[in-house]
Amino acid sequence: MFENSQLYKAYRDMKLIREFEERIRAEYQQGKLPGFIHMYRAQEAIAVAVCMNLTDQDYIASTHRGHGHCIAKGCTVEDMLLELCCKDEGICRGKGGSMHIADMSKGMLGANAIVGAGPPIAAGAALTAKTLKNGCVSVAFIGDGASDQGTVAEALNLAVVLNLPMIFMYENNYYAEFTKNPKPDGRIAERAGAFGMPSVCIDGSDFFAVYDAAKNAVERGRAGGGPTAIEAIVPRYYGHFEGDAQQYRERDEVKSSRSMSDPIKKFLQDPRSEGLSKNEIEKLDNEISELIENGLEKAYSASEPSYEQLFTDVYVNYKGH
C-alpha cells in the first residue's frame, strides 16, 4: 500500500517532467535552446515509478531521451535548465547539454547520445555495488531501438554471468528513430530469458504496474538475486527529436497514440490514488510552474562559459603539449 506522501511524490515528479518538457519544447520552437532535445512525454510513469524504488546511492544510466530520468532521479530543474541553455553554471558546465546531463551526487551516470551505450556502463556501476557489497542496484534505461544494439546483448550476458544487481528497464515506444520497430509486445523482454534472466512486460503508462515490477526487480538485485529485465510499453507521443515532422507516421496513428492512456490521468483515476486532495494537487501544480519559470529566468540570465572553459576538465592533469 502507498502512503499519501508517496503518491504526492509520484504525482509531483510525473507532472514536473511533463511541465518541464512542455515548457522547454515551447522555448526550443522559438529557437532559444541549442542542439537536439528529445521528448519523454507519455513515458513519465516509467522514470518516476522506477526511481521511487531507488535511493541516491543507487545508479541509473540514461538515454538521449533523458530529461524524465534526470528529474525522477533527483536532478534539480534549475541545474538542468542551466545545462540545457549550456551555461557556465550548468550541471555539466555547459559542456554536456541535454544529452549528457549527469549528477553523481544523485547516482545519475549520464544521459547518453550513443544509442545503446548505457547498459555496459550501468553494468560497471552494478559491479561496483557487488564488489563493495553495499546493497545498491544499477538501472539501465533502454529504448526499443537501443535493444537491437550489440552492447545491450553484451551487458545482458555479463550481468547474468557476474550475477550483477542490475535492472534492464526497456521503454518500448515502437519507434527506432524514424523506423517502426516491428516487434510484438514482450519480445524485447523475452530476449533476456535467452540469457537466463527473468523478465516481465507491462503497461508503461500505468504507474502502479511499473512500480510493482521495479520493486520486485530492485529487491531481487539488493538481495543478491541478480539482474532483471522489464519491458514497458508506451506510445511515442512526439517525434524522435523535437522538430521531427514525423512524415513517416500516419496522422491517425499519431492521433491515436496521443489519446492512448496518459500516465498522469491514469494515475489520478486509479482507485489507489483516491486519497489525494484536489487542493494539494493544485498547490503542487503551482509550485511546479513556479519552479520552472524561476529556473528558466535564471538560466537565460546566467553567464556563458568563458574561453578558458574550453580547455578545462579534459584530464585531471595532463603534462604535455
Binding site: G90, I91, C92, R93, G94, K95, G96, H100, A102, D103, M104, G110, T312, D313, V314, Y315, V316
Partner: peptide, 8 residues
C-alpha cells in the same frame, strides 16, 4: 566523461 560532465 570528465569533460562532458563538467569536471564533476
Amino acid at each position: 566523461f570528465r569533460y562532458m560532465f563538467g569536471g564533476n
